[in-house]
Design a protein around this nucleic acid. Structure first.
Length: 421
RNA sequence: GGAGAGAUGGCAGAGUCUGGUCGAAUGCGCCGCACUCGAAAUGCGGUGUCCGCGUAAGUGGACCGGGGGUUCGAAUCCCUUUCUCUCCGCCA
C-alpha cells in the first residue's frame, strides 16, 4: 500500500510510476475520494465535539437534580445526524481502502523502465556451461529412467502439475531442502521457521497477493483459507500488527514450505517435466530491516541465494527486472536463473525483492525509535525453489550412461555419490 | 463437536454487578532530572496509537479483541464473531 499522503501530494508522479508497471489506475479519482472523506470526517468530528460537551453538561445537571430534557432532545437529533455521517464515512473509507490496495508498489529509481520480461537486463553470470561429449538429455528422460520421478502417477493421484517423487528422487528432494536450510541457518544467520501452509485472508492481503492475485491461489471456501503460494506469506505475516525493536534488526528468517499455485492462464507454456507445477517445495528467505539498510540487506539476500548455487557448482545468471516485469508488491527485484543444458533454457529459481515499506504498510509492521513510529522494510528471496534446481542438477550432472552424479556438497545429504538405474 | 471462564496501555492488573469528572487506579518497565567519584537504592517529573486542522506550540475526533445495537452519554448493558484457557468427546 502506498502512503495516501504521498498520493495526495504527488498524484502525477504516482500515476506515471504505476503506468510503468502496466497498471491502469485513476489516481485523481482516488485523491478526490480521499478529499471527500476528509471533509465529511472533519464536519462529523466537530459535531461529535459538540455532543461530548453537551453530554458532559447533561451529566452535571443530572447530578444536581436539574432538568436536562431540552439538551437531551437536541442531542437526539444531533446523534442521529452523526450516525448517518458515520455510515457514509465508513462506506467511503472502505471504498478508498479497496482502491489503495489495488495500487502496485512504485519501482525504485534503479529499476530500468521496460514493457515486459524481454527488457530485463542481464547483470551477472557465474560458472561455465558444461561441455558435453554426448547430447544431454532432458531432465524428465533422465529421471524416469532412474525411477526418480513418476509424473503419470502424480497426475492420476491429483492432476498434472502435482509431481510424485520416488526413490532417489524423493531422497534428493529432501536432501536439497535440508542442505539449503542448513546453509542459511548456520552460514548466513537466518532463524529457521516452519510455517502453516494455509493462511487467512488478512495474511494474503498483507503481502499483496490479495486482492489482485486471488485467481492464482487455491482457496478453501468453507474455511476461507488460502494455500500459500510461497512461505513469504506466513513468514512476513508473523509480525503483522506488531511494533518491532530496531535493536533486533535485521530480523532474518529462512523457511521451508510447500508452495501451491493454480498457474491459471499458463497452461501448455514451458510445462514439460518439473518446469511449472501446482505444488512445489521452496526454501524462502525473509528479512525485516531498517529502511536505511534495506538495499544493503537486499544485496546480501541475493548473495545468500547465489551461495547455494555456487556450492552446487551450477552455472547461473542474474537479471535485473524491468518495471513491466516487476511483481505487484516489489520496488526492485533480481531474478536468478539456472542453465538447464537438456531443456536448453535458463530457468528461474529465485526472485529476490525489496518491497520497501509497501508490505509493511499493508500489514502494519512498524518499529519505534527516538523519532517516533516508522514502517519497516521487508525483503524476501527464494533460497531456492527445488523443482528447477532439481532440473538443473539432473541435466548438468547426467552421465553418458544415463546415471546421475550427485554434486559433492550434497553427497552427505543424499547418502550416495551416484544414482544408477 | 459439547459445556464453562476470559480478552483492558510495553508487561502485570483494577474498573464491568450499580452507564456520566475513565484514555482508564496501582505496581513493574522505560526516559529525564536530583543525590553519588560511579553504580545501586531513593525522590521528583514524564512515558500509547491512529485520523483531522495548524509552520509550530497546540487542538478536535477515535480507540479497553473485532463487528453491530440500546442510550443525550458505553471499557461498563444487549446481540454477534474471533481468539485463549479449563473440562468432556473425538483423533494422528
Amino acid at each position: 500500500m502506498l502512503d495516501i499522503k504521498i498520493i495526495r501530494e504527488h498524484p502525477q508522479a504516482v500515476q506515471k510510476a504505476v503506468e510503468t508497471k502496466n497498471v491502469n489506475i485513476d489516481i485523481d479519482a482516488i485523491v478526490a475520494l480521499d478529499d471527500k472523506r476528509r471533509n465529511l470526517s472533519k464536519k462529523t468530528d466537530d459535531m461529535k465535539s459538540v455532543r461530548n460537551k453537551v453530554s458532559q453538561a447533561i451529566s452535571l445537571k443530572k447530578r444536581n437534580k436539574e432538568d436536562a430534557s431540552v439538551e437531551i432532545a437536541d442531542m437526539q437529533k444531533l446523534s442521529a445526524d452523526i450516525k448517518e455521517n458515520d455510515a457514509k464515512i465508513t462506506a467511503i473509507t472502505l471504498e478508498l481502502k479497496a482502491q489503495l490496495l489495488a495500487i502496485p508498489n512504485i519501482p525504485s529509481d534503479d529499476t530500468p523502465i521496460g514493457k515486459n520480461e524481454t527488457e530485463n537486463v542481464e547483470i551477472a553470470i557465474w560458472g561455465e556451461k558444461r561441455e558435453f561429449d554426448f547430447k544431454p538429455k532432458d531432465h524428465l528422460d533422465v529421471a524416469e529412467k532412474l525411477k526418480m520421478l513418476d509424473l503419470k502417477r502424480g497426475a492420476k493421484i491429483s492432476g498434472s502439475g502435482f509431481p510424485l517423487y520416488t526413490g532417489w528422487g524423493a531422497r534428493l528432494e529432501r536432501a536439497l531442502i535440508n542442505f539449503m536450510l542448513d546453509i542459511h541457518t548456520s552460514e548466513h544467520g537466518y532463524i529457521e521457521i516452519f510455517p502453516p501452509f494455509l493462511v487467512n485472508s488478512e495474511s494474503v492481503t498483507g503481502t499483496g497477493q490479495l486482492p489482485k492475485l486471488a485467481d492464482d491461489m487455491y482457496h478453501l471456501k468453507d474455511d476461507d483459507l488460502w494455500f500459500i503460494p510461497t512461505a513469504e506469506v506466513p513468514v512476513t505475516n508473523m509480525h503483522r500488527d506488531e511494533v518491532l525493536n530496531p535493536a533486533d534488526f535485521p530480523i532474518k528468517y529462512a523457511a521451508f514450505s510447500g508452495c501451491f499455485r493454480r498457474e491459471a492462464g499458463s497452461y501448455g507454456k514451458d510445462t514439460r517435466g518439473l518446469q511449472r507445477l501446482h505444488q512445489f517445495n521452496k526454501v524462502e528467505m525473509v528479512q525485516f530491516v531498517h529502511p536505511d539498510k534495506s538495499y544493503e540487506a537486499w544485496a546480501g539476500l541475493v548473495k545468500n541465494a547465489e551461495a547455494i548455487l555456487q556450492k552446487l557448482e551450477l552455472p547461473y545468471r542474474i537479471l535485473e527486472l524491468c518495471t513491466g516485469d516487476l511483481s505487484f508488491a516489489a520496488a526492485r527485484c533480481h531474478d536468478i536463473e539456472l542453465w538447464a543444458p537438456g531443456t536448453e533454457k535458463w530457468l528461474e529459481v529465485s526472485s529476490c525483492s525489496n518491497f520497501e515499506d509497501f508490505q509493511a504498510r499493508r500489514s502494519n509492521i512498524r518499529f519505534k525509535d527516538d523519532k517516533g513510529m516508522h514502517f519497516v522494510h521487508t525483503l524476501n528471496g527464494s533460497g531456492v525453489a527445488t523443482p528447477r534446481l532439481m532440473i538443473a542438477i539432473i541435466e548438468n550432472y547426467q552421465q553418458a550412461n544415463g546415471s546421475l552424479l550427485i554434486p559433492e556438497a550434497l553427497r552427505p545429504y543424499v547418502g550416495t555419490d551416484k544414482i544408477e538405474a
